[in-house]
Every structure is written in C-alpha cells, then in structure tokens.
Amino acid sequence: MKLLLLATLNGITLAALYFIVASGFTLIFGMMRVVNLAHGSLYLIGAYIGHDVAALSGSFPLALAGGAIGAALVGMAIHYFLLDRYQGDDLRQALVTIGLSIIAADLLLARYGGLSYQFELPEMFYGSMPLPIVGGYPIFRIVLIGLAIAVYLALWLLVQRTRFGIMIRAGVDDRHMLGAIGVNVPLISTLVFGLGAALVGFAGVVGSSALSIAPGEDARYLLSSLVVVIVGGMGSLPGAAIGALLVGLAEQIGLAYFPTYSIILSFVIMVAVLAWRPYGLLGRPA
C-alpha cells in the first residue's frame, strides 16, 4: 500500500517534470507544426546556462531565469535563421534540427565535459517533508507539481484568453490568411518558438535540480516529449498533461513492480493509444 502510494506520487511528480518539458514541445510541434528535433538540445542548453548563472550568482531563481532566457534566444535564432524558411517542409526541418542537435551535443560535451552537474537548491527546498502514510517525501518534488500547474495555467490563459493567443491559433489554422490581414506571421512564429524554447530551458534547470544534468539527457527528454505529445494529441495542452501523467506513472509504477520491463512500458502505452485513437487522446485531425 505504502509502496503503491509512493510510486504513484513519484509518477505524478515525474509527470510534472515531463509536462514542463513537453509543454514547450506541444507549443512548437503540436500547435505550430514546426518539427523541432533539437528540443532536447534546448533542454541541455538551458540547464547548462542555468548552471553557469548559478555558479556566478549563487541564486537559484536567477538560474531559472537565465536558463529560460538563454534557451529562448538560442531557440529564436534557430527558428529565424534555419527553420522558418522551411515552414511546412517537415522532412527538411527534421534533418536540420537533427543535425543541430548532434552539433550542439558535441559542443556542450567539449565545453562542459562528461561529468554530471547538479544545482544547490535553496535550503527550504532540499530534504524531505512529512506526509501521511508514506512518511517523508522530497520537498522539491512537491514543488515540481506546483510549477507544472503554474505553467499549465499560464499557457492556457495565454493561448485562450489573449490577443497574442488568438494570433497563434489563427496562424496554426491558416498562416497565409493571417498574413493577408496584416499580421507579421514570421515574427509571431519566432516569438512562439522562443516561448517554447524558454519553457524547455526553464525545465532544464528544474529537471537538473530534481535529477541531474549530463550529456545524453537531450535525447532522453526529446523522446519523452515526443511520446507525451503523441499520446496526448498534437497541439492539445490538456492532452500533453494527460500524456505526461500516463508516461510518468507508467515509468514509476513499472520501476516499483516490474523494473525489468519499465523501459518499454511507455512505448506500449504509445502503441496502444495510437491503435485506439490515431490522433492521440485529445488530438484532432490536422
């Protein structure tokens, strides 16, 4: 009973992290249909920049901001110089971003080496807090849930309730018509891409505080984001949240009860969902 509760709690907190990473991906890939396979690299870049900022300033909030801004700038540059010209050309975007991610991984390895990095969390977030039944539970993992909910609400408000959000949604539905009525579409696209990159850079700092940052994390988070967005349905924010929950819970409950097979469990879920609902749980045909 205690194990099941703990595993569920672990699954939810891991899902929170997966959601923050995948929320940027669902914005870029799900809504704007820009195939960005360098999403994982932006995660690493955000985490490493955040680490440098923390090392210089000793402040965790500054590290969060630094990671998000750094990743956003890199992301906007990628979109402006490389991806925007291939809008709608999935294969080229995929190849360009795979190439970028390989180059970025080697550059980061050269700059930061192969060792793992971690953040010194503020004292109030480190350690464990008492919870009924399960006993102690790491404070920072509870914080993760709060962060994920905040990101969800902010994004939902932005997309559904603001003028900028209306333009994003209009651009997704008909890019040319939006341009014809006088909106600077490339600028909007680059800004949205930057926002998605900022989210994943932020997630990089959060994720490397909860876990750690090391080469290879890029591929791992790209994969988890792909699975989350595909399971949840392209472009659907609630879908991404449900997808993240499914993947996180599967991973942790799998690790608790049948660890040998926990790795394939998230793919089993993906196959099952796609067989049952080809557009994902909350997706709709493009």
Binding site: K2, L3, L6, A7, N10, G11, T13, L14, P138, R141, L211, S212, E217, R220, E251, Q252, I253, L255, A256, P259, T260, S262, I263
Partner: peptide, 17 residues
C-alpha cells in the same frame, strides 16, 4: 535485490522498495 534498468534517472520508486 532491486535491479534497475541501465539509464534510469528517477530511482525514487526503487528507493521506496
């Protein structure tokens, strides 16, 4: 004996066991 797959990043459920 708790065997964890190579490349596991989140061990919290293994620790719970």
């Amino acid at each position: 004996k708790i065997w964890v797959p190579n490349g596991t990043k989140d061990f919290s459920s293994a620790i719970a066991r």
